[in-house]
Nucleic acid binder design. Structure first.
Lengths: 334, 334
DNA sequence: CCGCTCTTTGCAAGCGTGTGCAAATGCTGC
DNA sequence: GCAGCATTTGCACACGCTTGCAAAGAGCGG
């Protein structure tokens, strides 16, 4: 291992002919330094290549500037897009993102939070998985702020950011009905994530209000392949559905591909399809999927501004955002 | 801002009735502690919820355990997949990833590296953009290790991981020729990334060796939309190409969609298409794209193991990996 | 019981910062 | 020139940890 030799404030001070505190103050926002010393310090730092050691600063200030993102399936379009938005806005707010991958096991969300504590992260943002209550308590006790995105946990303390899943689901149903669809289906994964389940329940409830039955099928993880399987199951039923709401766009893409290529079903003429997330592929001309756009920028903004808010005791605990309906041609009419 | 109150080794020591160094040694691999004290320390830590402060540890050891990933377009399938592989393998090696988004401006790669220095990252891995030479020098001078993925820079010091782009390009040409294609085209973005340019040059060179001309078109950023524009340009030529190698899969998907839906061209009957990266969408049944799989796991492994290697002076500087040809039905024959 | 070796333990220095406090400096008005 | 004040500067301590060093303890053969 190479010997790291970073230049310290001490060396800068010596070169600039001032005290070390002067150097520190030059790089501390709102500290009192004369323009003259400031100039000398900046000159010396530039010459030596000095950079404030944020580990030491974090140690002193008891505030590291680190925010931990806890994510699984980060290769997925929706997740990666959310990560992009979050990292960007965190950087704009002068913070830095630490990324923890929780693909391996389920308990790894807890491990991830422990990691966040070790690095004294100012906050953790959980995009997937569900932390054990004891761990979130540990985080909160340590003064670490917590944001749960699309997790809808009932715990006190964290900020919970969610979408109006039920309302969206009900709008899909309306669209299906207007298009003259009769036999409704809902295609879901087996992940059981709160937001996915909320869409399912919302769709069923909206249908029930109109006296319509919904066939529900669930399979596997929330991905393209599962969409294909779900299509095989739903489209081989005696009473083949003529409208299906897929819990996510990835499921919808798989569903649509199988409907078209394996069953030679025409979309939207014989089958209307809706998705959720508005991933990039939904707008590709092979899909033209009607879907709801996850307001990733707004989600990120809510999370980041909340982290800067003064008193966690007064801060709001829950935010519900709206997902716009993006109308494309996978549903008739419009 | 809430008052963070983390429990320190001092408190654990008091509760366990031992010295603070005993606590430290309990959590230091390879230090000498008796089983009895170890037990007492672990018990007390558990009860108090103690976690070693990695900021302080990094300060002392001069080794933070942080590795900085510098990325643009992280919402993109290939990039996000590489990030996934890297974070996972870094975690397995006991390190943690810090993610810096460089979408904003071009100089932001330099800003990102400065950020890495501030947090005393042990290393930085650059997936996109090109750092200024003065900055990489600064990093190396500070003992920070550097990995460049698919950047093919000629600088000394960093590890450069690249693929055999030229060979891949030549294999595509062979496949096109075998399929009986006559009029070759290469579709590229205007990004000018070394790997993209290597594929372009390799394809042209392989064609020239057989006395075949290649029409080259370049447009915009490296994404789906650019693929559509490129198709419009290439497919409206008087001599319409019957084979096109797209520099990436995203370009290929856009190209294929436009060829089919706007020009009603049948793939692969009238037009053969190849891509590069093997993103998830390439295997979707709407595309079935013949392409080369980026060996993301191998790339990540090379990067992570290199970081653990003993002496940076002896360490190798460059690695060339092979991209497997994934044969699907966007090229005739096979 | 002594001398020897080996392991375990505590002390204290040091990592690179931020910041309260008091001293020093500069400026203003008389 | 001097008192009065605001601003700037340096000192020294604190943050939480690792680790070299020496002292203490444990085990053991003679």
């Amino acid at each position: 291992m190479s010997q790291k030799v970073f230049v310290s404030a001490q060396e800068v001070a010596e070169r600039a002919g001032v005290s070390r505190s002067a150097v520190s103050r030059t790089f501390t926002h709102g500290a009192s330094v004369s323009p003259e010393t400031r100039r000398k310090v900046l000159e010396a730092s530039e010459a030596l290549g000095y950079h404030v050691n944020h580990l030491a600063r974090g140690l002193m200030r008891n505030e590291s500037g680190i925010v931990c993102l806890i994510v699984s399936d980060m290769g997925t379009p929706y997740r990666s897009n959310l990560i992009r938005a979050l990292t960007q806005q965190l950087q704009d707010a002068g913070k830095i993102a630490m990324l923890v991958n929780t693909d391996r096991s389920d308990g790894s969300v807890d491990l991830a939070l422990r990691q966040a504590i070790r690095y004294r992260a100012d906050a953790s943002i959980i995009l997937s998985g569900m932390p054990d209550k004891s761990i979130t308590q540990l985080c909160l006790k340590n003064g670490q702020r917590l944001v749960l995105i699309n997790r809808d946990d009932e715990q006190e303390g964290p900020l919970r950011i969610n979408l109006d899943d039920a309302e969206s689901a009900s709008r899909v149903l309306t669209a299906f009905v207007r298009a003259g669809c009769q036999r409704m289906a809902f295609a879901n994964s087996e992940a059981g994530t709160p937001s996915l389940m909320a869409r399912e329940r919302g769709f069923i409830a909206a249908a029930k209000a109109l006296g319509i039955d919904v066939v529900v099928e669930r399979f596997g993880p929330t991905g393209y392949e599962s969409g294909k399987i779900l299509a095989q199951r739903l489209l081989t039923r005696r009473e083949r559905p003529d409208a299906v709401f897929c819990a996510t766009d990835l499921l919808a893409c798989g569903f649509m591909d199988t409907a078209r290529h394996q069953f030679s079903i025409s979309v939207p003429d014989q089958l209307c399809i809706a998705g959720f997330d508005d991933i990039a592929q939904a707008s590709w001309s092979s899909y033209q999927l009607t879907t709801f756009s996850q307001p990733v920028e707004a989600i990120a903004r809510e999370a980041v501004t909340w982290l800067d808010e003064a008193d966690p005791a007064i801060a709001r605990q829950s935010v519900r955002l709206h997902a716009d309906l993006i109308w494309r041609s996978s549903i008739r009419g419009g």
